[in-house]
Design a protein around this nucleic acid. Structure first.
Length: 423
RNA sequence: GGCGGGUUGCCCGAGCGGCCAAUGGGAGCGGACUGUAAAUCCGUCGGCGUAGCCUUCGAAGGUUCGAAUCCUUCACCCGCCA
């Protein structure tokens, strides 16, 4: 278990510190007692995702080491949006942002402890920006930001060619002001965030010094990427949401289980609370017998438990074992099969005279976006019914294909499964 | 405010009156090889259906037998000049 001071060593061991203000000063500061720190989340979507999870778990590590977390939800900054390389953002309506703020709060509450001596606190930057006058903002905050230095920031420089609005250009002032306010009102002296936030983090540190002469700290966590440097999430057909309505826990678990060998160790360090020796042991075993995928299994189990709970994880593990265990599907008892398919994703379809063809079933089960795609998949040899390749796109499965309990098992490619219950 | 350049399918980027549903690359999807890994190779990659039809090339009009390609207006972006 980490203590006040050595938590930074743990974070560094886990590869969670990409950049930091004076490292030794920060280390010393963390040794002085329960440091109040904050991390912000902007409501730019209805759910938090994989990238946010890094911050959430880092916040928890600091709390477990005795420090005091403040979780900021950006009710104000979410109305603006920070500059990103892909270009100017489309503004979301105030109502939408408000709704997302509430959803993010609810998600965040599960991960930290809101009781005890170093209980977590939720704050919303809308509370101190809503009534702020433009003149006060320009006089009290704006005066501390030389435009020449703002223009030199990497995120801004990259946008100067393609264009950037004053709105997004000004974002750093808002986030910096958050730090100043939290420093003044709550004695917060540490902020962290993703490495893409580094400019905003240092902006706040500078503002606290310029405005109040205060010395505060900041560090950034690394961007989590695949072994080839690209982002996670795109290849799996969407962002890795934490909300079970937006990404099923089964799909979430499968994501971790399918992580590349080369990344397992790194991800275990970042996303699990396993001790150092446990992780090193898993890394060693994985290097020796990668085909057993012990690292992936541990990773999937731990992270899914953190996000979706132990019960759900147990159901998913059972489902995965049943569906990918290599056994004969037709030998599975109906109850096991039904439970497994409900985790993986299941739909119902008529069993009578009006029953559907294989192409419609693939679309209904969500394994293909259109009939054309389903038809194509059959043509490519990637469509399976009950683990047998389908070669005829006009096949109309009937009761004679049904497994125990009236189920059909559809599969696209190697690992996309769905169940159809004939009723 | 003036002049010039630009806006193409998930992304980048060709096309510049018919042969364009639109070259190429990337991503994605499928197959082979494997370990529900990586790399590699092959195939595929708007929708409906397989005759062909329908909807796409910033938006709306127009010219034409026919336009992503020409004209007009509008919106947004970039550059130079005020």
């Amino acid at each position: 278990m980490s203590t006040h001071a050595n938590v930074l060593d743990d974070l560094e061991w886990r590869g969670l510190v990409a950049d930091s203000t004076d490292r030794d000063a920060l280390h010393e500061h963390l040794g002085t007692g329960s440091v109040r720190y904050y991390v912000g989340f902007d409501p730019t979507a209805p759910s938090l995702h994989l990238g946010n999870l890094v911050q959430i778990l880092t916040a928890r590590r600091l709390q477990e080491a005795g420090h005091t977390p403040y979780l900021l939800v950006g009710g104000a900054t979410g109305l603006i949006g920070d500059p990103r390389d892909s270009g100017e953002r489309t503004l979301n309506s105030a109502d939408t942002v408000k709704e997302w703020v509430e959803r993010l709060r609810a998600q965040l509450e599960r991960f930290l402890d809101f009781d005890g001596p170093n209980a977590a606190t939720m704050v919303n930057n809308h509370d101190w920006t809503a009534s702020l006058s433009t003149i006060d903002f320009l006089r009290d905050i704006g005066k501390h930001f030389p435009v020449n230095r703002m223009l030199a920031r990497e995120t801004v420089k990259r946008r100067l060619e393609s264009g950037i609005s004053f709105t997004e250009f000004s974002y750093v002032l808002l986030q910096s002001m958050d730090y100043l306010n939290l420093y003044r009102d709550h004695g917060i002296t540490l902020q962290f965030g993703g490495s893409d936030q580094w400019g905003n983090l240092t902006g706040g540190v500078d503002l606290v010094r310029r405005a109040d002469g205060g010395h505060v700290h900041a560090f950034s966590t690394p961007l989590i990427t695949k072994a080839d440097g690209t982002k996670y999430g795109k290849s799996e057909g969407g962002a890795l949401w934490l909300d079970p309505e937006m990404l099923s826990p089964y799909a979430f678990y499968q994501f971790w289980l399918n992580v590349e060998d080369a990344k397992v160790g790194e991800l275990l360090r970042v996303f699990t609370f396993l001790e150092h020796d446990e992780i090193e042991a898993l890394e060693a075993e994985s290097a020796e017998k990668p085909y057993l995928r012990l690292g992936q299994k541990a990773l999937a189990a731990h992270v899914t438990t953190l996000v979706h709970g132990a019960e759900e994880t147990a159901r998913i593990e059972a489902a995965s074992a049943a569906l990918f265990g290599g056994g004969d599907l037709t030998a599975l008892p109906g109850t096991t099969l039904a439970a497994a398919l409900r985790e993986a994703g299941a739909v119902t379809a008529p069993a009578g005279e009006d029953r559907w063809g294989i192409v419609d079933l693939f679309v209904a089960a969500g394994l293909a976006k259109s009939k054309g795609e389903a038809r194509r998949t059959v043509g490519e040899g990637g469509a399976y019914l009950n683990n047998e390749r389908v070669t005829d796109p006009d096949l109309v499965p009937g009761p004679e294909h049904a497994l125990d309990g009236g189920w059909l098992v559809l599969r696209r490619g190697k690992k996309n499964l769905a169940g159809v219950e004939l009723v």
